[in-house]
């Protein structure tokens, strides 16, 4: 479904990605783990067109989308819950979710998608009219993921959904991610929390300073000595 081929991305003179190759197949949850500054967020921002690669390709369903403006990437079915959630803090939960469905025009469809988001995150239904800036971190993460789902993505990109959340909240967020995937959405997940990410994904890539150093099934990587030492704290 998604293929990154030899992707190089730089910020001025600083090379953030030095030729990474990643594949995400239809129906999978693939996770990209790595330390701060490894290039995880850069990878997602390049897929969505917020950054343009210096070299290499982003193929979505066989088509090269590198350099396509972000709003057109979204229209093709790739949505992202950004790092730090990016909730519109000055707007209500409802307005945030509606903005997620910006490209949809059929009110009936928007309504039924809203119900799906409420089924995923019942808390959001209670908070619907509340200004998003006053929500807890976990609830804001729910808004960010729910908002991305409102566009009916075929590929959902999640940037650090567990960041700054209590373990119990992380658990419920990841349960929702499991459900989203079971309902047919392919997921590419970026996480520092390797333990949880590996438990909730099929395959994984380990990114270190802009290069893929390991890849394999999540089970294999969770058992791998290097991963256990470097990322699982053993």
């Amino acid at each position: 479904m998604l293929q990154l081929q030899d992707l190089h991305v730089s910020y001025g003179a600083i090379k953030a990605l030095k030729g990474i190759t990643i594949e995400v197949k239809q129906g999978e949850v693939v996770t990209l783990i790595g330390a701060n500054g490894a290039g995880k967020t850069t990878t997602l921002r390049t897929i969505t067109g917020l950054l343009t690669p210096k070299q290499g390709k982003v193929l979505f369903e066989g088509k090269d989308i590198s350099g396509t403006p972000t709003h057109k990437v979204v229209a093709q079915g790739i949505c992202m819950s950004p790092e730090g959630r990016g909730v519109f803090a000055n707007l209500s939960v409802e307005e945030n979710l509606e903005l997620g469905a910006y490209l949809a025009s059929d009110p009936a469809r928007i309504k039924s998608d809203l119900e799906k988001v409420f089924a995923l995150f019942p808390r959001l239904k209670e908070r619907l009219k509340q200004i998003s800036g006053t929500l807890s971190g976990g609830e804001q993460q729910m808004v960010a993921i729910g908002r991305a789902m409102m566009a009916r993505p075929r590929l959902l990109l999640l940037d650090e959904p567990s960041l700054g959340l209590a373990p119990l909240v992380v658990k419920s967020i990841f349960q929702a991610i499991d459900e989203i995937n079971k309902a047919g959405t392919t997921v590419l997940l970026v996480e520092q929390n390797a333990h949880t990410a590996l438990k909730h994904s099929h395959r994984a890539y380990v990114l270190e300073t802009g290069t893929i150093v390991l890849e394999g099934s999540s089970e294999e990587l969770a058992a791998d000595k290097r991963v256990r030492e470097a990322y699982l704290g053993e």
């Binding site: 969505t48 972000t70 992202m80 997620g100 910006y102 566009a151």
Partner: peptide
């Protein structure tokens, strides 16, 4: 509020 996030909503900024 946020240009990049607006783009991610599919808005032609």
């Amino acid at each position: 509020f946020n240009l990049d996030v607006a783009k991610l909503m599919g808005i032609n900024t």
